[in-house]
Computed example of a mutant assay.
Amino acid sequence: MKQETVEVRLSSNNTLKVVKPHETADDYGHGGGGGTGGGDMLQRIKDLEKDMHGIKTDIAVMKSNYATRADVSDAKFSIIVWVVSAIFIAQLLPIIIGAIKTAFQ
């Protein structure tokens, strides 16, 4: 189990505050909310909701652009056919050129 250090404070109204390592107890100020977060917590939640909307949009765009297995399989087959055809033509080209040269001599 990972050990983490946390900050703990007892506020003036005897409320115990335990916060995450990347936060401080001051992040949970006394303003509004009746001790349920207060301070800028409401703004932070609004910002998170806005960010989440952007993340959902980005994920939807990525999913729409993903290649499916069928797409990859079709592309693989096309590439194999192209490479085999190129090698085959490269082998036949000297024979065809030689036949043309002898036909016009």
Rank of each mutant, 00 (worst) to 15 (best):
V61S: 10
R69F: 10
T57D: 13
R69A: 07
D71M: 07
M62E: 13
A75I: 08
S73W: 05
M62Y: 14
K63E: 11
L48P: 00
A60T: 11
R69C: 06
K46A: 12
I59T: 07
N65I: 05
I59Q: 05
F77P: 00
A70G: 11
V61D: 04
L48G: 01
D71Y: 10
I45W: 04
A60Y: 05
I59K: 04
I80D: 11
D40Y: 01
I80F: 11
D51C: 02
Q43I: 08
I59R: 13
N65R: 13
K50E: 00
D51T: 05
M41K: 00
T57F: 05
D58K: 15
K46P: 00
N65S: 13
A60M: 09
T57G: 03
K50A: 10
Y66F: 13
M52R: 08
K76H: 14
Q43P: 00
S78G: 07
A67V: 08
M52E: 06
A67I: 08
G54C: 01
I59Y: 09
S73H: 14
L48N: 04
K56G: 05
L42T: 01
Y66M: 15
N65K: 15
Q43H: 03
G54N: 11
L42H: 01
Y66R: 12
K76F: 15
H53V: 15
K56Q: 09
V61Q: 12
S78T: 11
I80Y: 09
I80G: 06
V72N: 06
D71R: 14
D51L: 03
D74W: 10
D47K: 09
S78H: 09
H53E: 14
D58T: 06
R69M: 09
V72A: 10
R69N: 10
K56R: 14
S78N: 11
I79R: 07
H53K: 15
S78C: 05
G54Y: 06
D47E: 13
I79Y: 09
I59D: 04
M52D: 03
V61T: 11
R44Q: 12
H53A: 15
A75D: 12
D47P: 00
M52Y: 12
I80H: 12
D47I: 05
H53D: 12
T68R: 02
A67M: 13
M41T: 01
T57A: 15
Y66V: 10
D47M: 03
A70R: 12
M62V: 14
V61M: 12
S78I: 03
L48E: 01
S64W: 06
K56V: 04
M62L: 15
I55Y: 09
I55T: 10
K50W: 01
T68Y: 05
M62F: 12
K63H: 05
A75N: 10
I45P: 00
I55N: 06
R44L: 06
M62K: 10
E49T: 08
A75F: 10
L42N: 00
D40R: 00
A70K: 14
V72D: 02
D74L: 14
S73L: 15
S78D: 09
R44T: 02
E49N: 07
I80E: 14
A70I: 08
S64E: 14
T57Q: 11
V72K: 11
